[in-house]
Amino acid sequence: MGKGDKKTKRGKINRGTFGTRRPRIKKKPSVETKINIDKKNIVTQ
């Protein structure tokens, strides 16, 4: 269990892949984008 192991977190980091052991971190929308989206909805209505 180490860098060469496909199923471990360390192995995923070494290979540069993602999976259940090392899922991708989803970016949260920033406050600025939320404000811009709200303004667009108001203008289009």
Rank of each mutant, 00 (worst) to 15 (best):
M1C: 04
M1E: 06
M1I: 04
M1G: 05
M1P: 03
G2D: 06
G2Y: 05
K3A: 08
K3V: 05
G4R: 03
G4Q: 03
G4E: 07
G4T: 05
G4I: 01
D5S: 02
D5L: 03
D5R: 03
D5G: 00
K6M: 09
K6E: 12
K6P: 13
K6D: 13
K7E: 05
K7R: 15
T8C: 05
T8D: 02
K9F: 11
K9D: 05
K9S: 03
K9M: 07
K9R: 13
R10W: 09
R10D: 09
R10G: 01
G11Y: 00
G11N: 00
G11P: 00
G11V: 02
G11E: 00
K12G: 03
K12E: 05
I13F: 09
I13M: 10
I13T: 03
I13N: 04
N14A: 15
N14E: 11
N14T: 07
N14H: 05
R15P: 00
R15D: 11
R15A: 14
G16T: 00
G16A: 03
G16S: 03
G16H: 04
T17S: 14
G19D: 01
G19C: 02
G19P: 04
G19H: 00
T20P: 08
T20N: 09
T20M: 08
T20D: 10
R21F: 12
R21V: 04
R21Q: 14
R21W: 07
R21L: 10
R21P: 08
R21K: 14
R22L: 13
P23V: 01
P23T: 00
P23G: 02
P23I: 02
R24N: 08
I25M: 06
I25D: 07
I25A: 10
I25E: 10
K26L: 06
K26I: 10
K26F: 06
K26R: 13
K26N: 08
K27S: 06
K27D: 04
K28P: 04
K28D: 12
P29V: 09
P29S: 09
P29D: 04
P29R: 12
S30K: 13
S30T: 15
S30E: 08
S30M: 01
S30H: 06
S30A: 05
V31R: 15
V31Y: 14
E32N: 06
E32S: 07
E32W: 09
E32I: 07
E32K: 11
T33Q: 07
T33V: 12
T33D: 11
K34L: 14
K34N: 07
K34C: 08
I35N: 01
I35D: 02
I35E: 08
I35A: 12
N36V: 06
N36M: 09
N36R: 12
I37V: 15
I37Q: 13
D38M: 13
D38F: 13
D38L: 13
D38Q: 12
K39Q: 14
K39M: 09
K39N: 15
K40L: 15
N41P: 03
N41E: 15
N41C: 12
I42N: 09
I42D: 09
V43M: 10
V43P: 01
V43S: 01
V43L: 14
T44P: 00
T44H: 05
T44C: 05
T44M: 09
T44R: 12
T44V: 10
Q45C: 07
Q45E: 13
Q45N: 14
